[in-house]
Amino acid sequence: MKTTSIKPGFGRQLKNSTSLGQTIRNSLTMAYRGLLKIKRTPEQLFDVTLQPIIFTLMFTYIFGGAISGDVQSYLPVIIPGILVQTVITTSIVTGVQLREDMDKGVFDRFKSLPIARIAPLAGALLADTVRYTIATTLTFSMGYVMGYRPEGGLGYVALAALLVIFCSWSMSWIFAFFGVIARTASSVQGISMLVLFPLTFLSNAFVPVDTMPNWLQWFVDMNPISHLVSAVRDLTNTGSAGWDLTISLIGALVIVAIFAPITVRAYMRRT
């Protein structure tokens, strides 16, 4: 052991707060930890690699003929829809993994370190954007293989991808909250599916809204998922950005503004 003596505990100049810079640095380090964990256990990427491939194939060939007459003309409708559905479903895993992670002893150390309180959560959520990126890339690639040629061009497809990744990251704060308050990882999965399943299917993701009964149309139009799907369709198919994009971004920010603070609070309370 080094014989260098330790600075005494008295007379140190210390601050009782964390700066924004430190918060960002801490969160990035925690994100690095998340990436290392993904690298160590690559099997946890099964869902984000297989789901986009299987779902895209399945939904396109099952519904294509019935809804749009043929598969080719259904692709511009279904690819944005399935993209949103797949990537947002992926964000549930964030909550589940957070719950499993928090049960381990290492979170005690994070709590006892002089780091930003939000960093262990923000870092985990940030690392998971890698998963969303994989799912997004694979969905667009599958679409391309099946003959999808978005009119908007590559630039707008990239913008749409960023939009979906950002919105999924925002949504993941909701599941992170469930993850923090729930007792077991499987209950997180259960609650989250219960919330997400109706949200993704009661939207314009797979079918035209005008075939639905009036009361359902009202809900579908309110549903933030519908706005996100429309925003992605606008970007990829016409290269335009409209009101739906604005609503999606505002909605995402509102979710973060509400759920990030209450998640951190719940995390601090939990022992």
């Binding site: 505990g9 140190r12 009782n16 964390t18 160590r40 381990k104 002893g105 290492v106 005690d108 150390r109």
Partner: peptide, 29 residues
């Protein structure tokens, strides 16, 4: 060291090291 653990928790954390009963290290790394 004269700092309240509740009111000045972030200062306290800069002065302590904690080794728990159950190893608080990351198993997967």
């Amino acid at each position: 060291f004269g700092h309240d653990v509740v009111k000045e928790s972030q200062i306290v954390r800069q002065l302590i090291g904690v080794t728990g009963q159950y190893a608080s290290v990351d198993e997967s790394l």
